[in-house]
Simulated scan of single mutants.
Amino acid sequence: MWTKKERFEAVLNHELADRPPVSAWRHFTEKEHSGADLFVETMLKWQNTYDWDYVKLQPRASYYEEAWGGQFDYNDYEGVLPKVVKDPIGGVADLEKITVLPGDQGVFAEQIEVIQKMKAGLNEDIPMFQTMMCPTSILQKLCAVNPIGRYRAASRDDLMMTLMHEQPERIHKTLQNITDTMADYSKHLIEDAGLYGVFYGATGLSRSTYMTKEEWEEFVKPYDLQMMEALKPCKIMVHACGLEVNPEYFAHYPIDILHWPESAAGNPKLDTAPQWLDKSITPMGGCDERLFGRHKAEEIAALTRNTLKRMKDIPFVLAPDCSLATNTYDEELRAFIEAAHSND
């Protein structure tokens, strides 16, 4: 009988387990902004109800902006994003406000408390991943730009891209301040909370329709690599999101897992990973998250079984291609799990 951790670490060691480890995640917008206890209670209920093989925490998408003074109306959500009341960055002068912050205070202290209480509340040694956006994605949100992800069109006409071209030195200083803050936060997650891993959101910065490869290599990759170093010895799960997202950019990153949406146009299929992905990195994905919340249980099960068939000789982590809809139905989740366990 495999434990959850044994199953997960087998595929990280590029060995076939009894079956691929499986999990899914979604936002609980009504319970994510009222302190650690309510959020932990919600995440534990999600885990205990569906008995996932690993836990991917889904904190509110605004907590980075809060750290640098962003204000939000949590009674008014658009999708999973609360309405912005005050943007931290409205122009070049505001870049000076993005200073290095201690990684164990304010909203960061709340998230450290979440990890500690989750670990205490889990019934067994279950791999747990905290969600963390990459520094450039955080800058994007500080500029009030919705992360480029999923299947939305990507526009280069935004404040962050404008500042990158008009004020590159100031942008690099700002990115370094964000990186130093997140590195200190990472240190406390590891040393104070004993975190197992990080779900590192690269969002859609690598999309062909957003940044050029040269822009990505200048304004994204150097700060990613600093974070990879700071996150040791955590397991690092990189998530690249959206259409034409070029997961190949991350093929030789010093990471453990690469998660990308094979269901999105212009992206390679999961079973092509051995052809281009570094042998030290485990692929992750396999189910189109757009099926959830639409009473598509049969389609979800069929797609999951097809993924297992395609990947039968390739160790991988099974997951939806992105966060599930907030109106996901229980029968859809049960169908996903039953299909995922069909090798049991």
Rank of each mutant, 00 (worst) to 15 (best):
265 A>W: 10
281 I>A: 14
275 Q>C: 01
311 M>C: 01
304 T>P: 02
265 A>E: 15
289 E>V: 00
285 G>R: 08
292 F>D: 07
276 W>D: 13
299 E>H: 05
289 E>A: 07
263 S>Q: 09
301 A>I: 05
296 K>Q: 14
312 K>G: 01
305 R>C: 02
270 L>P: 12
287 C>M: 12
281 I>P: 01
267 N>A: 05
313 D>K: 00
288 D>T: 12
292 F>N: 07
277 L>T: 06
267 N>W: 08
307 T>H: 03
266 G>P: 09
297 A>K: 02
300 I>A: 01
293 G>C: 11
270 L>I: 15
306 N>C: 05
264 A>R: 06
302 A>C: 01
289 E>C: 05
288 D>F: 06
292 F>H: 09
296 K>H: 12
297 A>V: 06
302 A>V: 05
298 E>V: 11
269 K>M: 10
264 A>T: 09
271 D>W: 08
300 I>K: 00
284 M>A: 11
307 T>M: 03
261 P>A: 12
298 E>I: 07
310 R>E: 15
274 P>S: 06
262 E>W: 07
261 P>N: 04
308 L>Y: 00
269 K>F: 14
310 R>T: 14
310 R>Y: 10
297 A>E: 08
277 L>C: 09
278 D>I: 03
299 E>C: 02
262 E>P: 08
291 L>K: 13
313 D>M: 00
270 L>Q: 07
305 R>M: 03
275 Q>G: 00
282 T>W: 07
269 K>L: 14
303 L>G: 04
311 M>H: 00
308 L>E: 01
282 T>N: 10
298 E>S: 10
268 P>D: 14
285 G>W: 10
280 S>Q: 14
300 I>R: 01
276 W>E: 12
313 D>Q: 00
271 D>Q: 12
307 T>Y: 04
304 T>F: 00
308 L>H: 02
300 I>N: 01
273 A>E: 13
261 P>W: 12
